[in-house]
């Protein structure tokens, strides 16, 4: 995926001279994850450059550059290091179009390596998507495959609105045979069914997509066919694809790596029950991280929702009208 992102940036720089790449260590080093590898060498200092070390400055500077006719693609080095820029993102990036009654939009992309599963020490593994999706005016993207990483990033750069582009760090090293010169991806804003199945739907995005796919594979061995929907863009949200799938299967589990409370999963579950109530054979469940600060490396495996937790949730979907015994036994509120 890292390679696909690098290629997307190259192609964007090549195709549109307004595109600029800047941030911390994105120049000669090529970024700490090497996503911008070689861009300064190949496109010059003016197109890809290092800034002083200040996230609020980087985002604010990008706002100004966008006002001045450029299309900045900026990097926050890690999820948690974007927080100093939060003020710029929620008060300015997200609201510029609205404040100016549509006269001034900000075409810019904020790339954020995010989420866990890489054994990172504190502040390097946050799942921060809920903060962004809760902010009207921001589009929020998270690819799960190299092809999507490429095409969604190209789409994000071309978008007239600001896009927060969340790159699941643990998928940087994932590989896929794909020809990036031919579009093999759904349009921006559409979810995609990654695996078809009739018994229940797993809704996933970003880092939880491979987990859902793996769970579906294991379930298939036991004769349960799970459908896996990869959301791709959280904003805009593709109700249509999700609803069609859940209406077909009648059962659904939403899988997210982020902590659970008031997370993206909560929004998805609400939307599904609003639209699919009469098709549902069981409550829509969530599998998520615990409501704790991201754990230290040696304990992250206890926190991260894995295949077993997904399958446990599937077991609770009241097949054959079995009540949700696990839930009852736990005496949960």
């Amino acid at each position: 995926m890292a390679q696909a992102l690098n290629t997307a940036l190259r192609d964007a720089l090549r195709d549109d001279e307004r595109v600029l790449v800047f941030g911390e260590d994105v120049g000669p080093l090529g970024g700490v994850f090497r996503i911008t590898d070689g861009l300064t060498r190949d496109f010059g200092e003016e197109r890809c450059f290092d800034t002083p070390l200040a996230e609020s400055g980087i985002v604010g500077f990008a706002v100004g550059m966008a006002m001045g006719g450029y299309r900045p693609v900026i990097e926050m080095q890690f999820d948690a290091f974007a927080y100093p820029a939060f003020e710029q993102i929620v008060s300015h990036v997200a609201k510029f179009r609205n404040r100016t009654r549509g006269k001034l939009g900000l075409p810019m992309v904020i790339r954020v390596p995010y989420a866990g599963g890489i054994g990172g020490v504190e502040h390097h593994c946050d799942s921060s998507e809920a903060y962004y999706v809760h902010t009207p005016g921001l589009k929020v993207v998270t690819p799960a495959t190299p092809a999507d990483a490429y095409w969604l990033l190209r789409d994000a750069v071309a978008d007239p609105d600001p896009v927060v582009f969340l790159e699941p760090k643990k998928l940087y090293w994932s590989k896929e045979d794909t020809d990036l010169t031919r579009r093999q991806a759904e349009p921006f804003g559409r979810a995609v069914v990654r695996r078809a199945g009739r018994d229940a739907t797993l809704v996933a995005y970003g880092p939880s997509v491979p987990v859902a796919l793996e769970a579906a594979k294991v379930a298939a061995d036991e004769g349960i066919e799970l459908e896996v929907v990869d959301l791709r863009t959280l904003v805009p949200f593709d109700d249509e694809t999700v609803v069609a799938s859940v209406r077909r299967t009648g059962r659904c589990v939403v899988v997210q790596e982020a902590q659970s409370f008031a997370g993206v999963g909560a929004e998805i579950v609400a939307r599904i029950q609003e639209r699919c109530f009469h098709s549902l054979a069981a409550p829509v469940l969530r599998v998520a991280g615990f409501d704790i600060p991201y754990p230290p490396p040696k304990l992250e495996h206890s926190h991260l929702p894995g295949v077993d937790r997904v399958l446990d949730a599937v077991d609770r979907l009241q097949f054959d009208d079995r009540p949700d015994v696990l839930h009852l036994a736990r005496g949960a509120a």
Binding site: D25, P52, L53
Partner: peptide, 11 residues
């Protein structure tokens, strides 16, 4: 240095 960024780019 700040990782790879030399002082001259910092200030």
């Amino acid at each position: 240095y700040a990782i790879s960024v030399p002082l001259a780019r910092q200030t």
